[in-house]
Design a protein around this nucleic acid. Structure first.
Length: 425
DNA sequence: TGGGGTTAT
DNA sequence: ATAACCC
């Protein structure tokens, strides 16, 4: 079936990137409609992590401190967003909805999804041919206002992609009440970059002839998705400051500094090339819950914090229906220099007799789990010496389906995968 | 800077 | 177990 792309050597994909507008703030406005017309910020600890457009007009920015935000905008309404449950739930509804259109949906964080719509377009092209219709009309913006050539089949396919993107956004709005942006292009990198070009609640398609302009519009190299903080620092060492520098930089030198794999990948990114597939995310690989604080310096406090984190986590695991086989405890220790980046963790298998208890309603898994986690804690921290933690995190991973005998509410969106159809071999 | 996630080594 | 990346 997948080998049915023979002579069409331009076997180009069409990818849609969907990016919800100020997601947490939108969810909060749905939860409490009175907040609709007010400047709203979502607060975690002393940060405003996101805010609605009312607030942005008044000068509030993402990740601004609460102090600065209130100075800028005294009327700002703040809601606490430290419990991600409502956002996580809405996030999966969006992914689930996109999954109704097509199986290739990949999540990126809570508010972004990539959808490979190549196959949907293939079907629509056939329908169009059969009905003898040659009129196709673009939805939303065309990057650079580039003229569309309807004799160019690549253009036509991207235009149909723009129509599908419009349907995605309409469905998300009609069914979930959320607005967002979309970008349509031939790969994930470009679709993501182009989705941000017209900003709230709009969409943009990139035609292949304009990729240079899109890439060239990136003022800093870290704006390339996939080139992060560390790589940027090392590129600066090499004198590579912008995307153009990276394009023409000698590959051999780059490989020596970053390794073959990274060097090759990011240099292709600098040409707008990205052959990474849209990988269906499916259900989560891990469940974690964390809390940060100013100071935690006794074993008793650590135990209390862990006990606070567990109920919520166990609830999520129970609703998921799968059983975790690994637990991890992560900490962040206070340090005046290098304040944010140093996390350590220890993990271990969950003993089988505890795993069994996970699904059970009445059983109290918490005390033995706390014990297990405190053992992990003592592997990291000598409790006889003074310590100063600023974060604790508990993560369950290595999730396995329970043996099919056990009945439960498998509450997840994963569509029943059709059993391996190829079977031959 | 929060409170999450993923993959590669 | 860590390090990099993403939001």
């Amino acid at each position: 079936h997948s080998k049915s792309v023979p002579a069409r050597s331009a076997a180009r994909r069409v990818i849609v990137h969907v990016d919800l507008d100020c997601f947490y703030a939108q969810v909060e406005m749905i939860r409490n409609p009175e907040l609709r017309d007010k400047p709203l910020g979502v607060q975690q600890k002393y940060l405003v992590v996101t805010c609605n457009y009312e607030a942005r007009k008044l000068g509030v920015k993402k990740l601004m401190s609460v102090k600065d935000a209130r100075e800028k905008c005294p009327q700002l309404v703040l809601v606490n967003g430290e419990d991600l449950t409502p956002y996580r739930e809405m996030s999966y509804k969006v992914t689930e909805l996109l999954g109704e259109f097509c199986p290739l949906v990949e999540r990126l964080g809570f508010d972004e999804n990539f959808v490979d719509v190549t196959e949907i377009i293939e079907k629509r092209l056939n329908q169009l041919q059969q009905s003898g219709c040659s009129r196709v009309c673009v939805s939303g913006h065309v990057y650079n206002n580039q003229a569309i050539n309807l004799h160019d089949t690549t253009h036509v396919r991207l235009v149909i992609g723009s129509q599908i993107a419009e349907e995605f956004r309409e469905a998300i709005h009609a069914r979930l009440g959320l607005t967002g942006c979309a970008g349509v292009a031939s790969n994930k990198l470009l679709s993501k970059l182009v989705s941000g070009t017209f900003k709230p609640n709009q969409q943009t398609v990139l035609l292949p002839e304009s990729w240079r302009d899109l890439i060239g519009s990136l003022d800093r190299i870290q704006k390339v998705p996939g080139i992060g903080y560390k790589t940027t620092k090392r590129l600066e060492t090499l004198g590579v400051k912008n995307v153009c520098d990276l394009q023409v930089f000698p590959s051999a030198v780059l490989e020596k500094e970053l390794g073959v794999s990274v060097a090759h990948r990011i240099q292709k990114l600098s040409y707008g090339e990205d052959d990474s597939p849209v990988t269906p995310s499916g259900p989560p690989q891990s469940f974690s819950d964390e809390d940060s604080f100013k100071k935690c310096s006794t074993e008793v406090e650590v135990k209390e914090k862990i006990e606070e984190l567990l109920p919520n986590l166990l609830d999520r695991i129970h609703k998921d229906g799968r059983q975790p086989h690994t637990v991890r405890l992560s900490i962040r220790q206070f340090s005046s220099t290098d304040k944010w980046f140093n996390r350590e963790s220890r993990q271990c298998p969950i003993p089988p007799h505890l795993i069994q208890k996970f699904g059970k309603e009445s059983s109290n898994v918490i005390p033995p789990l706390v014990d297990l986690l405190m053992k992990l804690f003592r592997k990291m921290i000598d409790v006889d010496l003074p310590f100063h933690l600023t974060l604790l995190s508990v993560c369950f991973s290595n999730l396995k389906d329970l043996p099919s005998s056990k009945k439960g509410s498998i509450g997840f969106y994963l569509k029943q995968m059709s059993p391996p159809s190829g079977s031959g071999k």
